[in-house]
């Protein structure tokens, strides 16, 4: 077990070291990307669609959703390549290969945590002081990361067999983004009630709701959010692990 943890730690370190080599702004990009999209969405939804005007400090609300979403989307996109990029390694020595998708998720999670730290400072500066409910945030981060790992395992395997998976994922993520309460709130009457029920079935909806309530509103998250997040996480992680274990022997030969 300690060996597996050590392996994860080394792979995450490698990921972080390698990613920003030769990049001037380095880690800042993880902050800058959501900042740029925040500017775009703020303009679109307050100047053009006049929809975000209903929410105070709409740009901060946006960031609270965009950071976990970007983590989720970036992890899934990265997972299409984890096995393919390491095929020589996989075919030359044995190690627990499931560490590859997991370590990619952890590396992205570390970025998210740093960005969340910066966001929290901004939120406090604009009067969104967190309540006691902020203690729940780490739990949500952990669950979201576990669920993301489950998805990553499935996608990394799928993309070995069908390179279409990577293409398909891009389209899916676009639709998924708008189907998740990332840039809009639930329960504010902004979304038709029937749509809201549908959106709550979305695996990431619970996590987004918890991020918004603990960080932006400073309130205790609704129960449905926890039920959704915990159950989806259990299902996705279990299925992901099962698929990975089941397919691992043939994937190694397939690469």
């Amino acid at each position: 077990m300690t060996g597996d943890l050590l392996l994860l730690k080394s792979l995450v370190e490698k990921d972080l070291k390698v990613r920003y080599k030769r990049s001037l702004l380095g880690f800042l990009w993880f902050l800058l990307k959501p900042l740029f999209s925040m500017v775009v969405y703020t303009v679109v939804f307050t100047r053009i669609l006049r929809f975000g005007g209903a929410i105070e400090h709409f740009s901060l609300f946006l960031l609270t959703g965009l950071l976990p979403w970007n983590f989720f989307a970036a992890s899934l996109s990265a997972s299409t390549k984890t096995l393919l990029d390491n095929q020589k390694l996989i075919r030359s020595i044995y190690f627990p290969r499931v560490a590859l998708p997991i370590s990619a998720v952890i590396a992205n999670a570390i970025h998210m945590l740093m960005a969340l730290g910066v966001l929290e400072v901004l939120l406090i500066a604009f009067g969104h002081t967190p309540g006691l409910s902020i203690v729940l945030l780490p739990v949500a981060v952990l669950l979201l990361a576990a669920m993301t790992s489950g998805f990553s395992m499935m996608i990394s395997i799928g993309n070995v067999y069908y390179r279409d998976v990577a293409q398909f994922l891009e389209v899916i993520l676009l639709a998924w983004f708008y189907a998740s309460p990332v840039i809009y709130p639930l329960g504010e009457g902004l979304i038709p009630v029937r749509m809201e029920a549908f959106i709550k079935f979305n695996p990431v909806a619970g996590a987004m709701e918890i991020f918004h309530s603990t960080m932006y509103y400073g309130t205790w998250p609704d129960l449905w959010a926890w039920v959704s997040l915990v159950s989806w996480t259990l299902v996705i992680l279990t299925v992901g692990l099962l698929i990975f274990k089941r397919m691992e022997p043939s994937v190694v030969k397939e690469l």
Binding site: G3, L6, L7, S10, L11, E13, K14, K17, I93, F95
Partner: peptide, 14 residues
């Protein structure tokens, strides 16, 4: 760095 990373792949600690 590569030696340490490979060591971890082979199951050796730092």
């Amino acid at each position: 760095e590569n030696v340490f990373l490979n060591g971890a792949l082979l199951g050796f600690d730092q």
